[in-house]
């Protein structure tokens, strides 16, 4: 099969930014939803935990069980996709030379990062819808207002910054191990499964962890309709700090 004359003649031009953003976001989203471990981490474990923790009373909480656990599990879900999922994906993309190769295409770095963020937000939307639906089915009565979105977005930035920091500096397998370990520790210490009051005096320190700030912030808002300034500030500091450090130390390969 021969090449017709002129069929390879140069016609170099970058696609419009919007088209690149759409294509890259679709690719990122496809990768997240196709990866079995990622779906387990972002959807199955949070929803499973919500059902089990609500129905089986092995952790005692103040107030209605489902009202306590929905906000915690939302926080866990955001950590799973923005931090753990993103760190692991980025670590392997660097190791496999994907990010390096993308750097030789017309796709700007900023568009690549925007696509990653958009894809995380879309996965989160799916997670939030699913978790809220399961929560409502279990009898959840949410309060609060649109400031929930602010908490979710700040939390996403904080966890994205931390995820990119990890995935942007360590090798794929090291990132995988570290991101899962951190996920598990924050699951236990971040006010998702156990109320922070269980940890006694340590609670005053633990509440500044991003997971705790997000789960507490969501809980106060959704359970009592109160917005806690300390949680908001804590998330804002994590977000700016982690994104600034990640931007400094991130390695594309």
């Amino acid at each position: 099969m021969s090449w017709a004359a002129g069929s390879l003649a140069p016609r170099p031009a970058a696609a419009p930014v919007g088209a690149m953003l759409r294509a890259q976001t679709r690719a990122e989203l496809t990768l997240s939803l196709r990866n079995g471990e990622q779906v387990l981490l972002t959807l199955i474990i949070p929803v499973g935990l919500l059902v089990v923790l609500t129905l089986v009373p092995f952790v005692s909480v103040v107030g209605r069980r489902v009202d306590f656990f929905v906000p915690g599990v939302l926080s866990l879900a955001i950590m799973s996709s923005a931090f753990t999922g993103q760190a692991i994906a980025t670590g392997f993309e660097r190791q496999y030379g994907v990010l390096k190769r993308l750097g030789a295409t017309p796709l700007p770095r900023a568009v690549l990062l925007a696509a990653k963020t958009l894809s995380v937000l879309l996965v989160e939307l799916l997670q939030l819808l699913l978790i809220c639906a399961v929560g409502l089915a279990l009898g959840w009565h949410p309060h609060g207002d649109a400031t929930v979105v602010l908490l979710v977005v700040l939390g996403t930035f904080a966890f994205s910054g931390l995820g990119l920091l990890l995935g942007g500096t360590l090798r794929g397998l090291t990132t995988l191990a570290a991101a899962n370990l951190v996920w598990f520790v924050l699951l236990l210490l971040g006010g998702v499964v156990f109320p922070l009051s269980e940890y006694g005096a340590f609670a005053d320190v633990l509440r500044y962890l991003p997971t705790a700030a997000l789960s507490d912030g969501l809980r106060q808002l959704l359970q009592h309709g109160q917005l806690i300034g300390r949680d908001l500030l804590s998330l804002a500091v994590w977000a700016t700090g982690s994104l600034a450090v990640a931007a400094k130390v991130f390695r594309w390969e």
């Binding site: 970058a14 496999y96 994907v98 017309p106």
Partner: peptide
């Protein structure tokens, strides 16, 4: 970037795509 095509010695593909 649009004017130059690059084929590295190895790798460069998303394993899952």
């Amino acid at each position: 970037r649009p004017r130059v095509g690059v084929m590295p010695q190895s790798g460069g593909g998303y394993p899952g795509l």
